[in-house]
Structure formats: C-alpha cells, structure tokens
Amino acid sequence: MIDLQGVLKRFGSLTAVDRVDLSIHEGERIVIIGPSGSGKTTLLRMINFLETIDGGKILIDGREAGYRRDRRGRLVLEKQQVICSLRSEIGMVFQHFHLFPHMTVLQNVMEGPVTVKRQPKEEARAIALDLLGKVGLLDKRDVYPAFLSGGQKQRVAIARSLAMRPRLMLFDEPTSALDPELVGEVFSAIKSLAAEGMTMVIVTHQMGFAREMADRVIFMDNGRFIYEGTPSEVFSGTMDNPRVRAFMDKVL
C-alpha cells in the first residue's frame, strides 16, 4: 500500500532516519521498537508528511506521492491541497493525545468528517456515536477532554482518527503517557481495531504488546533498521543480533 524507498531525514548534522526502506502491505501490522532517539517517531511522521523527507521517495499504491523536485532538484512538499487529501486517508494517534480541548468528546470525533470531508453533521454524528460506542465512551460524549482520564483521552483520539475512515493507522507510542493501569484499555481498543483488519504501524516500548500485535517487528537504532522479523524471531531467546539482544535484556 505504502512504500518508503531510501527515505532520509537530517536535523542539522544529525541523521535521524538514514536511507530506510519500508513496505507496508494491506492489512499488515508493523511494530517498530528500539531505543529512544533511534528515529522511530520521525519515520512514522514521514508516512503522513508531518515530517518532510530530505531524500528518497514515498510511493502510495505504487505511485510517487507528496513530493516534487524544484528547479535545483531539491525535494519540496506538494501543494497543501494534495498533502491534505493524502493525510486524510492516514490516521495518527499521538503519545500526548492532542485532543481539541475546546470541543466535547463528540465534537472532537465529528471534527474531521465535518471540516475536512464536508460530511453533513447528522451523518458525522452517527459515525462518531458508533465509534464512541466501540471504544466504550458513549456516555462521555458531551464531556470536555479535560475531565477524562488519560486512557479515556487516548480512546477518544483513536475514535477521532477512525472517523476519517483511514486506510492506515499510525500509533506513536500510544500508551507511553499513561498510568500503567490505564494501558490495558487502550491496548484492547487497538486490538479490536486489528481484529477488523486495519493496516497499522505502531511505535511502542511495550514489548508484550508488540509481541502480541505484530505481523512484523522492526528494530531501529541510529536511524537504521537493525533487525526485521516475526515476533517469535525477535522475542525468542535465540536472538543472535547483539544490539537487539542488549536492548531486549534492558527492557524485558
């Protein structure tokens, strides 16, 4: 569905993502793990163009998307209109939720369809209520985000993304900002989404969750893919890559 080919991102002298190739297939669940500062989040943000690439290309359904070259041959982002319509098909869930605090839960979930897709309010409302029911927050629909727990906020954020009917969901450390007892409710929301066959890329530090969810686990360090494999390969005791091994020993 989406292919990253040799994507590169530099912040000053630091190379955050160093010529990485990644193919995301329909219905696939990819989990990216690795130490902090390894470029996982930057890579994720490249997929929905929140981070621009300094080299390489991004293909959507086999066609180059999002960038063109200016007269001097540098990559520049396409017109806003193009980028926005690409983004509207990719959902993203942030570590710190980023719910819109001035809107109720229901308004948060309706906002995308109404403003971006120009859906009629009644239609958007029906979709939103349905999604809030799925994440178990129907009773909180008229509450402002400030009055929710972290787990509830993240479930609303998931519903908000899903309201756009995305083809792909990106999760950027969705449980890192949560109290430990609230992690479970967010995981089960993501799991039920997986059960419906949603394509997703997840960055997480929760190894148990990674093992349970992933079709494919990618271990990233210093902006590169160090290891790629199935969960059983990565999490079995027989890992022979020393850096992955060292990381696993620390986190497990």
Partner: peptide, 9 residues
Amino acid sequence: EAAKSLGMT
C-alpha cells in the same frame, strides 16, 4: 499537528 493529521489545511 493533530488538526493536520486529520487532513485539515
């Protein structure tokens, strides 16, 4: 970022 990720201009 959240607004942009929904596809807003």
